[in-house]
Write a protein that binds this DNA or RNA. Sequence first.
DNA 1: TTCAATGCAAAGCTTTTGCATAAAG
DNA 2: CTTTATGCAAAAGCTTTGCATTGAA
Lengths: 138, 138
Amino acid sequence: MNTRPKYKTKQREILVEFFKSKSGVHITAGDVCEHFKEQGLPIGQSTVYRQLESLVDEGIINKYIIDGNSPACFEYAGHESRDLKDPCIHCKCEKCGKLIHLHCDELVEIKTHILEEHKFKVNPMRTVIYGLCEECSK
Amino acid sequence: MNTRPKYKTKQREILVEFFKSKSGVHITAGDVCEHFKEQGLPIGQSTVYRQLESLVDEGIINKYIIDGNSPACFEYAGHESRDLKDPCIHCKCEKCGKLIHLHCDELVEIKTHILEEHKFKVNPMRTVIYGLCEECSK
DNA sequence: TTCAATGCAAAGCTTTTGCATAAAG
DNA sequence: CTTTATGCAAAAGCTTTGCATTGAA
């Protein structure tokens, strides 16, 4: 934590561009390594992990932990997210494993409700709602 | 997944009793192994992991993932499984670890909304909302 | 007797770390 | 020239798996 970079490196720029281009998509550290290896411009995995940590720290990307035994997911935290009040909420299907992420005003209201009524400040980035998706709940 | 046991073993009973006696406390797989080793009745770690998986599957204990890089926590879910019609969602403080139980009224609101608007059937027994409690959010 | 559960050791996966080298400022 | 970032390889940490053995029904 608190690993703010001091130098502007090529790898860092490439990573930021990559996440920006994949806005709205969940990407693992492994995906990143694989992608650049295929492109012929491999980035060392330790560099990937270290830069990812910095980028999360700076708020440029978000880190999501869907399930303890799968790799962490990262996603661009674009300026498009009007406020910090509108991060998406994740729903994970227990049966097929599908991940759904919702942007919804009503969910934001629920978050506010929990804060005001229960004095609990929800961290949507770490919270995952488990259950069954439409197909699997039949 | 779906690892329902067919035999009633000594280890299984001991584990259930242990979790019951530690109701309200978060315990890792490592804690469990250590505890029984100290007691002079060690249980193999693979057995611990396998039974824990079953118990989660049956709803006897819940599994919490606090942070992707720390071990998973387990906790007795007795009070919830007693009455499946009246479950509650846990809010867990990421800082001090405190657990808060959300009651039905809010729960129903959230569940219904997500089901009707987003076609996702929430499993409250497995869902944990992470964030900061009143004291820690200062 | 049959078949699941146990336990050991080994493997698997994701993530972190040590250290020499390369690159930024 | 100084300091940070990189990248390889190795280590770390939690969890899973293979397989022979034990134990439940």
